[in-house]
């Protein structure tokens, strides 16, 4: 399972004072979207039943966030740091191996 490559910052955006914001709110660091925990929006998470999975890769290709990665065993699992819980992988899985499960508080 791919680990989120989060580079620790001095301050998160939500902690910056108005004096610390870049001129015009420009973003000077390319590719910093990797730092955003888009998984925090999720209300349901995909859970894979490996006994049903035939490693077809369809979930990997359908994931709109590109957050599904291959495990060392060859299965496919979503990185919950980014997964927004859209359920497309569960919908597309031809083996019904993926179930969307309510997140608990």
């Amino acid at each position: 399972m791919a680990k989120a490559k989060v580079k620790p910052k001095a301050k998160a955006e939500g902690e910056l004072s108005w004096k610390e914001i870049e001129i015009g709110c420009f973003i000077t660091e390319p590719g910093n979207a990797t730092e955003f925990r888009t998984g925090a929006w999720r209300s349901r998470k995909p859970v894979v039943d490996f006994s049903k999975c035939n490693k077809c890769t369809l979930c990997y290709y359908y994931c709109p966030d590109g957050c599904i990665a291959k495990t060392p065993e060859g299965y496919f699992v979503a990185d919950l740091f980014y997964c927004k819980g859209c359920g497309i992988c569960a919908e597309e899985c031809p083996k019904d191996a993926i179930t969307m499960v309510e997140e608990e508080k």
């Binding site: 108005w18 914001i21 709110c25 420009f26 390319p30």
Partner: peptide
């Protein structure tokens, strides 16, 4: 490269 005119969620818009 810089990103110009990006999206600003509620946690930063007021400061900008």
């Amino acid at each position: 490269p810089v990103t110009v005119g990006a999206f600003a969620p509620p946690f930063i818009y007021t400061e900008v």
